[in-house]
Nucleic acid binder design. Structure first.
Lengths: 193, 193
DNA sequence: CTATTTATGTATCAATCATTACAAAAATAA
DNA sequence: TTATTTTTGTAATGATTGATACATAAATAG
């Protein structure tokens, strides 16, 4: 391969940029913010991402989708997928305060982008719908196996969990406190048993 | 009173500005947006609000707090306050699509402002905590009167409702659909009975 | 009428925005 | 070595940002 060697890897730029977008959102993050966070100057930045700020944001979101996908695969291998989902919620409580304040980048994007960018909005909505689908399927399977008392439609229960996820996204900022969140999470998970 | 008469009333500017902030959030709303929406030029705008954009946003949020306060007074007069709260949630389902997409301006602000403006963030958090307190108190009273089966700590149940409120803030955008929301709201309210 | 006061509309401000232009740097291919 | 290719760093670009300056309009007080 010819040419000056790359010192700012695409993946690394996206990861660093994701951290800033996650905290400040799309609109409030400036190119200057991204350049400081990634170390890359305007030259490298636009050479790597012709689509500029929006392309990097899309890829940061896409990166997050992959994390959810990885969890989905983990679920499919698990003997007790619903318990894995519940543990996923439980693990939220013990996160660092900064993680509470950051919340979920996908849920954040849905709230921020509604009247700003239809495309980014729809992308984010689609991702959470897939997560919801994952919840629904796990609940359905567990009901079929006779492991759940509740006979409520799994579609409703899946939506209950994604609603909880989105609610937690704000509750965590109101109470970035391990004990408060732990109690709340246990109470809400008890609905699905 | 001396001087040229006011044609852009403070309250009217705030109401019109609130609508824009509600849809686009703080950062993505420009002064140009506000001037278009209110009709007031830069002269009138800064003459009326020395604090500029931020002052108007604060007042738009304050206006919303008053709406919650009004509901609180309505509650105190009601014979069945918990039922009033439940109806408040139920009424969400039948809102217009545009209202679903706008969501709750206070919850939106909490999500947007976390790493952007501590003061605006804290204000919004405080408001939702007061709403939560209103939920908690209504549930506590109903438990004392022996009208509720559930003996779960009213503090947990109040937090459950405010978490639901915040979750609904995103779910409404995912499914701005009357039937989906109606089913979801009924299911979640059934937990408090 | 005149002086005073307040609101308005417009021009302008410096700062920042996202993006582009371009020359120098640093590699490989021939 | 020389030509070619790609990345990098820096210096611009024009547009937009939030905010100010200021002359004029439009009222009242005396």
């Amino acid at each position: 391969m010819r040419g000056r060697p790359t010192i700012y890897e695409d993946d690394n730029i996206i990861k660093k940029a994701q951290e800033v977008f996650w905290q400040k959102g799309y609109s409030a993050t400036s190119l200057s913010d991204l350049q400081k966070a990634t170390g890359a100057g305007a030259g490298s930045f636009y050479n790597t991402f012709k689509g500029g700020k929006k392309e990097v944001f899309k890829k940061a979101i896409e990166e997050r989708r992959l994390a959810f996908d990885a969890f989905k695969i983990e679920l499919s291998k698990s003997g007790s997928p619903l318990e894995l989902i519940k543990d996923f919620f439980r693990s939220i409580a013990s996160a660092e305060e900064n993680e509470h304040l950051k919340g979920c980048i996908i849920a954040n994007t849905i709230v921020e982008m509604t009247f700003i960018d239809e495309n980014l909005e729809d992308n984010a909505v689609q991702i959470l719908k897939e997560v919801e689908q994952m919840f629904t399927q796990a609940i359905k399977n567990e009901q079929i196996k006779g492991n759940l008392k509740t006979q409520t439609d799994p579609e409703i229960l899946g939506r209950y969990l994604i609603t909880f996820w989105c609610g937690l996204n704000t509750l965590r900022r109101m109470y970035p406190d391990k004990n408060v969140l732990k109690n709340q999470i246990e109470m809400q998970l008890a609905v699905i048993s």
